[in-house]
């Protein structure tokens, strides 16, 4: 029962001579809001790339619901229930906001390509269903009004929220947010904080997020892992991390 949703055991990846992530281990419980922090270049996004199948770990294991997923292709991992947003926004620029979210939901689509090509009722109804679901998600992230706007034309903060909606459309069990608050003003950050909490409550999604804004992370996450130079330097609840001397020195530099 108490099996963790995601479990990294000494996950490592090496690019040539550079060890980007070195023996990182942590466990995420179901329903948890989990934070991944660290200075620039600490290997946080690489860690995300390992979990979502962009890269294959060179050593160590990644278990999702008890099953190994290291090296599984990205689309299969999404199907298993891990989905992510991107640090540098990667929306489908010329598609509308609604269409972006429909693509997110497409992997749970139950009609065949053949039926789409022949425009059979099955394909039509599935498309309708995905559109309906997409509209609900847009409502959740407060983008319903701009559903038909080209996503490239949306404001920055809207694009970030759209990425979350698109990821949620895949019906993930684990949602990975890569710096969701980057470039947002304080007001937007407060709203985002609330939104992430709502998402967890309404959809029961476990969230793993990377964030630089300490106030944001400390205010949201229940447990935090700190990386520095690819290595894990601390792990624990926010209060502990706040006072951990190793973390402080990693961020502020060693006191001479």
């Amino acid at each position: 029962m108490s099996e963790p949703l995601l479990k990294l055991t000494e996950a490592t990846i090496q690019f040539g001579g550079l060890i980007a992530v070195n023996k990182v281990s942590f466990e995420i419980e179901r329903g948890q809001l989990f934070g991944l922090i660290g200075p620039n270049g600490a290997g946080k996004t690489t860690c995300f790339n390992l979990i979502t199948g962009v890269y294959k770990p060179t050593a160590g294991s990644i278990l999702f619901e008890g099953k190994p997923i290291g090296g599984t292709p990205a689309n299969k991992i999404a199907y298993k229930g891990i989905c992510r947003t991107f640090q540098n926004i990667r929306l489908f620029g010329s598609l509308s906001a609604l269409e972006n979210v429909v693509v997110g939901g497409f992997l749970r689509n139950r009609s065949s390509l053949g039926s789409a090509l022949a425009y059979f009722p099955k394909a039509i109804s599935e498309t309708e269903r995905l559109k309906g679901q997409a509209l609900e998600l847009l409502e959740l992230v407060d983008l319903r009004d701009v559903a038909n706007v080209r996503s490239a034309d949306l404001a920055y903060g809207m694009q970030r929220r759209l990425e979350i909606a698109r990821a949620l459309a895949t019906k993930p069990k684990l949602l990975l947010l890569d710096e969701p608050a980057a470039g947002m003003n304080p007001q937007e950050k407060v709203e985002l904080l609330q939104m992430v909490k709502t998402i967890r409550e309404q959809l029961g999604v476990t969230v793993l997020l990377i964030e630089h804004d300490m106030k944001f992370v400390m205010g949201l996450c229940e447990r935090i892992v700190v990386l520095d130079h690819g290595e894990e330097i601390a792990q624990g609840p926010p209060e502990e991390i706040r006072n951990n001397p190793k973390v402080i020195s990693a961020y502020l530099g060693e006191a001479v």
Binding site: C83, F86, R90, L91, V103
Partner: peptide, 11 residues
């Protein structure tokens, strides 16, 4: 539009 993002969305 974006191969990496579509793969991440399960396409």
């Amino acid at each position: 539009e974006d191969e990496i993002a579509s793969a991440a969305m399960g396409v």
